[in-house]
Design a binder for these strands. Structure first.
Lengths: 106, 106
DNA sequence: ATTGTATATCGTAAATATACGATTAAACAA
DNA sequence: TTGTTTAATCGTATATTTACGATATACAAT
């Protein structure tokens, strides 16, 4: 884009778009699934279970972290990732609210 | 990306990612809102109500159409857009299913 | 201190997304 | 036919995303 015009939209819609962008790659959805299943998970396990390099997985983790959906905690030489449940719930609520607003009206 | 590795992921997660990508720009969320409010809407009205050029709005409409979320129907010299409600419901269900899978487990 | 392990970051290449002006195409009216 | 209106598409510039090898960093263990 020449430059982004996002500031012209409502905060709500900008936040929704950011969350949706965090979910817009199957690797990141797979990561969230796996973190939920295992409750928490060191980075290496995610790398082992994804068809992507360590660097790429780390990059996807960064995107999820920047979207606020996961947290990473140092555990010795490793990083233990887990889902930020309050944030995930917030995203879920916002999306459900959006779907309630986007309903057949008249 | 050097090239996308999406085919390595499940169809479900690929589809979820595509839907999320369709929602990953505030203009497209705003378009869906407005289409839902008005039930249907000619392209020109959307252009008038968005801080974006006609070409850019048309591009966002194309993204939503390619994601299957909206339909466009010729109405004289105009195009009347409306939400594809079954598709939107399908997306909503898939996301809710995802949220049910991504829950605190143990 | 040195070594080993785990992860982040850097550098880079290619693909995709965003935005807009200009042009084209389609539908209608005169 | 000609002109008008509406929307799509083209061309283009810039930004962002995706991917990976290489390197740096942080910690643990010896």
């Amino acid at each position: 884009m020449a430059f982004s015009k996002n500031e012209a939209f409502t905060d709500t819609d900008q936040q929704l778009a950011l969350w949706a962008k965090a979910l817009s790659h199957p690797a990141r959805i797979a990561i969230l699934r796996e973190l939920a299943q295992r409750n928490a998970c060191i980075c290496g396990e995610l790398v082992a279970n994804l068809p992507l390099s360590q660097a790429t997985v780390s990059q996807h983790l960064k995107v999820l972290k920047e979207a606020g959906l996961i947290d990473g905690e140092i555990d010795g030489p490793r990083i233990c990732y887990c889902i930020d449940w309050p944030a995930l719930k917030e995203m879920e609520n916002a999306l459900i609210l959006l779907f309630n607003q986007i309903k057949p009206c008249c």
